[in-house]
Each structure stands twice: as C-alpha cells, then as structure tokens.
Design a protein around this nucleic acid. Structure first.
Length: 306
DNA sequence: GTATTTGTTGTTGC
DNA sequence: TGCAACAACAAATA
C-alpha cells in the first residue's frame, strides 16, 4: 500500500507514540531479506537504551533519529506497515522488527513541533493508573518482505537519505524540470515515467493513476508526446494530488482509523479503481484496466484519450 | 491449482 | 551511452 502519504501516516504513528521514549528491547527475525544488510548484534546493542528523538518521511522512505547519533531508516516496500501495540504484545510471523519503548509516566515529553500536545496524544499514557512506566511496542510488519531496514551511526543522516530527490511540493519541482525529464524519457509511457522516483519521489501506482485521471491524460501516451499545456497540467496535478493525499491520509496526527481509505472522498479515482465494473466518479462512465509500464493501470476512457 | 498485488533492482538488448 | 522492457524478489488473497 504505502506511497507518499501512507508513509507519512505510518511515520507519524511511531513518532506520536514514542518520541521521547527509550528503547528497552529490540526484537528481530528474518536475517535473509529485510534485515540482510544489518549486523544484528551491533544493531541491537546500539539501539537498546537509545531515545527516539525525531523522525521524518521523504518520498517512500522514513528516517528515525535516536540519541547517540543513531539513525533507523525504513522502507515499507509493497506490503509494509508500522503499528503501535501495547506492552506485552507478542510479535507475529511477519513482524520483522519490534522495538519496545518506555518512559516514566511522570516524565514530560519535549518533542519539537509536537511540543505542548501533551498526554492526550497517547491513549495509554493518558491513564497511567499508578504505573511508573509507560510502554509501547513499535512494530514493523511486512508479509511480502520487499521492505528494508537501514541502520546508521553518525552525526549526519545516512548518505542515501540526502540523495532522495527533492519533494514534489518543494520549489525545485518546476514545470521546466518535469518537461525536461519527460523529454529524456520520451519513448516511455507517461504512466511508467510518473513512477520514477528520481523525478516524482513518493508517487506510486495509485497516485500515478490519480494524477493522470485528474490531468485527463491517457496513461499509455508517450512522455515525449505531451503538449506544453499538458505538461503544465500534469505538473499541477502532481502537486495537487500530493497535497490532497497528505492532508487526507496523513493529516490526522497518526490517529486515523486503521482503514486508510475511510476518509478519502468518492470524488477520487482512488475509491473506484479497484472495484470490478467501477465507474468514473466524474462522468459515471466505465473505467478501464490494463497493464501499462508493467503495472496495473486504471483510467477513464471518456476523459483520457490516446 | 491459477492469477493477482499499492515497489525496487539487476539484467538484457536496442 | 542512455534508455526501455522485463524478470525476480515473497506471500497473501480471490
């Protein structure tokens, strides 16, 4: 599931629950894939006792900063999720990384931009009922194991973090930059080009379809065939969809109901694209599906023409 | 049993 | 060289 806004949603979940808390236990399994790059011993030793200071999401990646110059990077892959469980949670089959965190229930949390939010952020902390400690279990679960975990020690964030392309909502994401990129990829279908993270960081399969649908551009059009007007519309809808998705999906302080779709309006393609016999919410006409750029693609033939 | 899946990387060939 | 297409990764779900 996780694209730009879902990643931000999951980041907030961990951040909201556990910034200011100290890691008291690190549980891992699966050495083969997700944690393949890691020295598990060093990883557990370093993280145990470290306090979660802050976190950030960029594109589809997250970076959690801990005390002691420790950084934890997470990519959710195709099926990854971050959850927060109560103390005593028993990790399941696909819980590949589990951090047990703790703080004194009397401690005040100083937490940067969340300062002043207080205990009401934390349903467990809100009722300490005499307990000395508040505890959370941070779970990274990923059945398909396309995700990855990176561990880094240093004053600066890891190098891969700084190499993530500037966001679509940043100033460097200009019409010109988009136009130039589309020219370089002129022989590829626009759908495939929108999935390229070096220019459209955070855009995944459903966001690409949503953008093209709103821009009224057929996903199989070759990138080089777009008129200057279409390039401008595409640029605008990239920004629009990113902004809307972040507001709608990630804009609730990590407290959305578990079903991420719940607050997404019917006016989005998102809510119609998977249904068999789904219809375009703007025109009521049937949607079409095909594999374009190697991925399942949904579009509205009534408004997106070849 | 078959086909499908919201991501990324490495390989192959143009 | 640069770009485009595709297989592979793994496991759940329909």
């Amino acid at each position: 599931m996780p694209e730009l806004a879902e990643v931000e949603f999951y980041r907030k979940r961990w951040d909201t629950a556990a910034v200011g808390e100290k890691v008291v236990n690190v549980l891992t399994h699966d050495k083969k894939k997700l944690l393949r790059e890691l020295d598990l011993g060093a990883f557990r030793r370093a993280l145990t006792g470290a306090t979660l200071l802050s976190s950030e999401a960029r594109a589809k990646q997250m970076l959690f900063q801990f005390s002691g110059d420790i950084w934890l990077g997470i990519h959710l892959g195709m099926s990854g999720e971050l959850r927060v469980e109560a103390a005593g949670y028993e990790p399941g089959k696909h819980d590949h990384l589990v951090l047990v965190t703790q703080r004194r229930s009397t401690e005040h949390r100083s937490r940067g931009r969340h300062a002043g939010a207080g205990n009401d952020l934390d349903p467990i902390g809100a009722r300490p009922s005499g307990d000395e400690f508040v505890s959370h279990v941070l779970v990274f679960t990923d059945p398909r194991m396309f995700g990855s975990v990176d561990f880094h020690i240093g004053k600066e964030p890891p190098i891969w973090w700084s190499r993530i392309a500037p966001g679509i909502l940043s100033k460097t994401f200009t019409v010109e930059a988009v136009g130039n990129f589309l020219q370089r990829r002129q022989r590829a279908p626009i759908k495939a080009v929108l999935l390229m993270q070096e220019r459209f960081p955070g855009v995944g399969n459903w966001m690409a379809d949503e953008i093209l649908w709103r821009a009224a551009i057929h996903p199989a059009r070759l990138a080089g065939s777009l008129t200057p007007g279409e390039v401008r519309t595409l640029w605008r809808e990239c920004r629009h969809v990113c902004r809307l998705a972040l507001e709608t999906i990630a804009g609730h302080g990590g407290k959305l109901p578990p079903d991420l779709n719940v607050n997404i309006p019917d006016t989005w393609l998102f809510n119609h694209r998977w249904a068999r016999g789904g219809t375009d919410p703007k025109t009521g006409t049937p949607l079409e599906h095909a594999t374009i750029g190697g991925r399942t693609t949904c579009w509205s033939p009534a408004t997106q023409k070849l």
